[in-house]
C-alpha cells in the first residue's frame, strides 16, 4: 500500500523543486543527493512543519491538509538532524519528549532497550552532559525511535558516527522497523550504507 506520495510540482519557496516520489508501507527507503539539494527540507515538508507551495503531499492516499496536524506529526515522525537534549540524565530526556507529547512516560527498562538498539550500552541514569556528540545523537535517535508509530523520517541519523557503528545502528533500526511494521525514509550521505540498507533509493536533483 502507498504510504507517502508527493506530486511532481512540489516546491518550497520557489527554489527547491522536487520530482514526484512515493514510498510504500513498510519500506526502508533512502533519499540521496548532493548537499543543498533540499533533502532535509523535503523531510520537513513531509511532516508539515514547513509549507509546500505549490504541490501536494499524500499520506495513505489522503492530502496532508486534511489531517489534524499534531496527530499527523506524531504518526509521521521526523527525527531532525540537530540534536536537542536537556541537561540531565538520559531518562530525563525520554521524559522530556514524552511530556511534550502529553504521553504516558516510558519506563527505564523500555528506554534502555531503545538505547541498546542504538548501540548505547549506558544505564538510563547516565548524565547526558558528559556524552560525546555521537552518543548524544544516538540518545536522541533512541528517544524518537521509541516514539515512532507509523512512519519515521530520519535526517542523517548516523552523521556523527563512525562507519562500523553507523552500520550496526542502521541494521538495528531497520530490523526494528520491519518488526513493528514501520515505514522509514532516511537521508544519508554514505553510498555504502544506502546500498546495504535501501529498499528504495530516491535521488534528488537539487535547485533548478
Amino acid at each position: 500500500m502507498e504510504m507517502i506520495r508527493t506530486t511532481s510540482d512540489l516546491t518550497f519557496q520557489d527554489f527547491l523543486r522536487y520530482p514526484a516520489l512515493r514510498v510504500e508501507e513498510g519500506e526502508f527507503a533512502f533519499v540521496t543527493g548532493r548537499s543543498g539539494a533540499g533533502k532535509s527540507t523535503y523531510l520537513r515538508l513531509l511532516n508539515g512543519s514547513i509549507p509546500a507551495d505549490p504541490g501536494c503531499i499524500f499520506y495513505r492516499g489522503i492530502p496532508l491538509e486534511e489531517y489534524q496536524i499534531l496527530p499527523y506529526r506524531r504518526q509521521v515522525l521526523l527525527v531532525p538532524q540537530a540534536v536537542y537534549l536537556i541537561p540531565g540524565t538520559i531518562l530525563d530526556n525520554f521524559h522530556f519528549y514524552y511530556d511534550a507529547r502529553r504521553q504516558q512516560r516510558i519506563d527505564g527498562e523500555r528506554a534502555a532497550e531503545f538505547l541498546r538498539r542504538c548501540c548505547l550500552d549506558f544505564p538510563v541514569d547516565t548524565s547526558c552532559d558528559t556524552l560525546s556528540g555521537g552518543e548524544r545523537q544516538r540518545v536522541f535517535l533512541a528517544i524518537f525511535l521509541s516514539l515512532a508509530t507509523d512512519v519515521i523520517l530520519l535526517d542523517e541519523p548516523t552523521a556523527a558516527l563512525d562507519e562500523a557503528t553507523a552500520r550496526q545502528v542502521l541494521a538495528n533500526i531497520k530490523e526494528y522497523c520491519k518488526g513493528q511494521g514501520l515505514t522509514a525514509l532516511c537521508v544519508c550521505h554514505s553510498p555504502k550504507l544506502v546500498e546495504t540498507f535501501a529498499d528504495r533509493v530516491m535521488e534528488m536533483g537539487g535547485a533548478q
Partner: peptide, 15 residues
C-alpha cells in the same frame, strides 16, 4: 539560540 529545541519539539508533535 534554541532553534534546535523548537524544531525537535515541533517534530514530536508538541503544539
Amino acid at each position: 539560540d534554541q532553534r534546535s529545541k523548537i524544531e525537535a519539539l515541533v517534530c514530536v508533535g508538541a503544539s
